[in-house]
Simulated scan of single mutants.
Amino acid sequence: MSTTGLDRRSRRRQQTIDEILDVSVALMETEGVAALSLSAVARQLGMRPPSLYQYFPSKLAIYDALFQRGSAQIRDAQREARARAPQDQELERGMVAFSRWCMDNQVLTQLLFWRTVPGFTPSPEAFAPAEDMVNDLRSYLQQAVDKGRLHQDATSDEGIALFTSLTAGVLSQQMANEPQATYETGRYMKLMPTVLDMFYLHYRPTRGKEK
Score class of each variant (00 low, 15 high):
A65S: 10
T194G: 09
G46F: 06
A181C: 12
Y188L: 03
R100Q: 15
D104F: 10
R48S: 10
Q44D: 07
A61Q: 01
R79C: 11
Y203E: 06
D18T: 08
Q15K: 13
A181F: 04
L60T: 00
D76K: 05
P49S: 06
P193A: 03
V195Q: 02
T30M: 07
R69V: 03
F163R: 05
R48W: 10
R207Y: 14
Q106C: 01
S139K: 12
M47F: 10
D22I: 02
L201W: 12
G46S: 11
T182D: 14
M28A: 07
R82Y: 01
S172R: 14
G94S: 07
K147Y: 13
Y55F: 15
D18E: 12
T121L: 15
Q173A: 15
L201D: 13
L6V: 01
L141G: 02
V107N: 01
A161C: 09
Q44M: 11
R8E: 15
L52Y: 00
G169H: 12
Y200G: 05
G159W: 07
T206W: 12
E80V: 11
G46Y: 07
G5V: 12
L162D: 11
R69C: 01
L171F: 15
R12N: 11
E184N: 06
R187A: 08
E131D: 11
W101A: 06
S123Q: 05
T16I: 14
A154T: 01
D132Q: 12
A128Y: 07
T206R: 03
E29H: 13
S99F: 15
R43G: 02
G5I: 13
D136H: 07
R48F: 11
S51I: 07
A65V: 04
E92W: 14
S39Q: 11
A176E: 15
G46M: 09
P179F: 14
L137Q: 00
L45E: 09
A85N: 03
A128K: 10
P205H: 13
V23I: 15
F120R: 04
L137F: 07
C102K: 01
R207A: 02
E80I: 13
R207T: 05
E131C: 12
N105Y: 02
L196E: 09
D132Y: 15
E19M: 06
D104Q: 14
P205T: 06
Q173D: 13
G32K: 08
Q143H: 10
I62N: 01
M103R: 12
S37D: 08
W114I: 06
M189Y: 11
W101M: 03
V41D: 02
A85Q: 00
S39Y: 00
L66S: 03
D132R: 10
S123P: 03
A77Y: 00
M175T: 10
K211S: 04
D146W: 04
I17N: 03
Q54Y: 10
R69M: 08
S37E: 04
A61D: 09
T164R: 04
Y188Q: 11
L38Q: 06
Y188G: 04
V145T: 04
G159K: 01
W101H: 04
S99T: 15
L191E: 13
Y63R: 00
V145Y: 02
L60V: 00
P129K: 03
I20E: 01
S165W: 08
E80P: 03
A77S: 05
G119Q: 02
S165C: 10
L27K: 12
M28P: 00
V107M: 06
T16A: 08
R82E: 13
T4N: 09
D132F: 12
S51Q: 15
G46R: 09
